[in-house]
C-alpha cells in the first residue's frame, strides 16, 4: 500500500457551513476605548490577552479588519518571531508571539504609546555602550 492510500486529510477546524463568528469580538472594541481613554488621561498602559478569550479565527479576522493596519510593524526575533504592529488606532498594538516552530504561543492587544518590549533596557543599552567602546578601541 502506498502512503497516499492511507486516508488522511487535513480538516478545517470550523465545521462547514459555520460562519465562525461568535459575536465575542465587538465588545472588545468598547474595552479598548476605555483603555485608550485611560492611557490618555493617566498614561497607564494596559493589555488584553487575546489567547485567553473564546475567539475563533473568524473573530480574530473581524477584529483585525475592524482595527485596520497602522504605520508601524516591529519584528522581534527572540526564540521565534514576534510581531508588534500598531493598528489603525494609534496606541493600540497587536502583538503576536510565535515559538521557534512558528506556532502562535500568545497574542495580546496592548494599549500603550510604545510596547515595553520594543524599548531597550538601560542595562542592555549599557552593554551596547560597551560594544561601541570596544569598536572604537579597535579602530
Amino acid at each position: 500500500m502506498s502512503l497516499d492510500a492511507i486516508p488522511i486529510q487535513v480538516v478545517h477546524t470550523t465545521p462547514p457551513g459555520e460562519p465562525g463568528l461568535t459575536g465575542n469580538a465587538p465588545p472588545l472594541l468598547r474595552e479598548l476605548l476605555e483603555q485608550v481613554e485611560r492611557l490618555l488621561e493617566t498614561g497607564v498602559p494596559s493589555a488584553i490577552d487575546l489567547s485567553a478569550l473564546p475567539l475563533t479565527p473568524a473573530d480574530m479576522d473581524w477584529l483585525r479588519n475592524a482595527l485596520g493596519p497602522g504605520e508601524i510593524d516591529v519584528t522581534l526575533d527572540a526564540n521565534g518571531e514576534s510581531t508588534l504592529s500598531e493598528t489603525g488606532c494609534p496606541g493600540v498594538w497587536w502583538i503576536t508571539h510565535r515559538n521557534e516552530q512558528g506556532a502562535v504561543t500568545s497574542q495580546f492587544l496592548e494599549v500603550t504609546f510604545v510596547p515595553e518590549l520594543v524599548k531597550a533596557h538601560p542595562q542592555d543599552v549599557a552593554m551596547g555602550r560597551e560594544t561601541l567602546e570596544r569598536l572604537l578601541a579597535d579602530l
Binding site: A47, D49, L76, N79, S106, F108, D124
Partner: peptide, 26 residues
C-alpha cells in the same frame, strides 16, 4: 545568550497560559 526580550516574551506567554492578567507577565 538568552536576551532580555526573549525572557520577557516567554514570561508574557507563560502568564497568558496561566490565565494571569496580561500585566503579570512583566
Amino acid at each position: 545568550g538568552v536576551t532580555r526580550r526573549t525572557f520577557l516574551k516567554y514570561c508574557a506567554t507563560l502568564a497568558s497560559m496561566m490565565a494571569l492578567p496580561p500585566a503579570a507577565g512583566r
